[in-house]
Amino acid sequence: SKGEELFTGVVPILVELDGDVNGHKFSVSGEGEGDATYGKLTLKFICTTGKLPVPWPTLVTTLSYGVQCFSRYPDHMKQHDFFKSAMPEGYVQERTIFFKDDGNYKTRAEVKFEGDTLVNRIELKGIDFKEDGNILGHKLEYNYNSHNVYIMADKQKNGIKVNFKIRHNIEDGSVQLADHYQQNTPIGDGPVLLPDNHYLSTQSALSKDPNEKRDHMVLLEFVTAAGITHGMDELYK
């Protein structure tokens, strides 16, 4: 796709999030870079409003799984890469995230190029959380598991539907599940690639910047598309 050509090198990323969870309002600002050749993201996020009212790991899918245009699609799968094909005009990404036995996040993001920078601007609203639950009670460990993110075409809306389940580790050794339902639709009216069913395999590492006084998260992530085999004719070339 034409959009794919915008991702040949390292691309700067800007992320802006405004959130409200159970009436606790907050903002997060992030910057870093993405390299789609390797499916690599390096980002640093800062809570610009003081202390973040929710655990950082609960925002990873909104912040970095928010820029799935940096996923590495192998050559034989490039015609299934909706995310890059929607660029530079970008796409709207909407999600509902259900935390098992707790509340939910609803998010709406616009992901697009502004100049040479890929920008992810998000509004997040969280409701029905227990004040002493795993999320508002800050009981999650500061780490992140690997996940597969399942993608299918949504021809009606000229976009994709995505769903997956995140496993958050809790300090007591148990797990907090979070079910994600995602819809992506193009902002522009140019042609986009509608994929066959496949998935993104994601690995994320969270860390801290020892010199950063503000509440923050440093993230390194690798994302690769998989799940579609080479056609038989490919094998015999």
Score class of each variant (00 low, 15 high):
E4G: 11
D128N: 09
R72C: 14
Y91N: 01
V223G: 02
P12L: 03
G34S: 01
E33K: 09
D196G: 12
K2T: 07
E94Q: 13
N169D: 13
N158S: 11
V21L: 03
D128E: 05
G30V: 00
N145D: 12
P195L: 04
E89V: 08
E123G: 05
K155E: 11
Q156H: 10
I187N: 12
P12A: 02
I187A: 14
N211Y: 12
K155M: 09
I187S: 06
F7C: 10
H147L: 03
N184D: 07
Q156L: 10
H230R: 12
V175M: 13
G39S: 02
Q182R: 00
K112E: 03
D75G: 09
I127F: 14
K130R: 12
K165N: 13
D189A: 06
L59I: 07
K165T: 13
G50R: 01
G32R: 00
Y144S: 08
A153V: 04
F99C: 01
N211S: 10
C69Y: 03
K25G: 02
R167L: 08
M77K: 03
V111A: 04
S201R: 11
Y236D: 14
N184S: 10
M77V: 06
M87I: 05
N197S: 14
I228M: 15
G188D: 09
L136Q: 04
Q93R: 00
T37I: 06
R167C: 14
T224I: 06
H180Y: 04
L200Q: 04
G188A: 02
N143A: 11
L194R: 07
E141K: 08
E31A: 06
F7V: 03
L59H: 01
P210S: 07
K25E: 05
S71I: 06
L200R: 00
T96N: 11
F164V: 09
Q79P: 10
F129C: 04
R214S: 03
E94K: 08
V11L: 07
Y236F: 12
T117K: 08
V218I: 15
I166L: 09
D172A: 06
K100E: 12
M152I: 14
G115C: 06
L124Q: 00
T107I: 02
S174N: 08
M217K: 01
Y65F: 00
H216N: 04
I228F: 10
N158I: 04
V15D: 01
S29P: 00
T61A: 14
G90A: 00
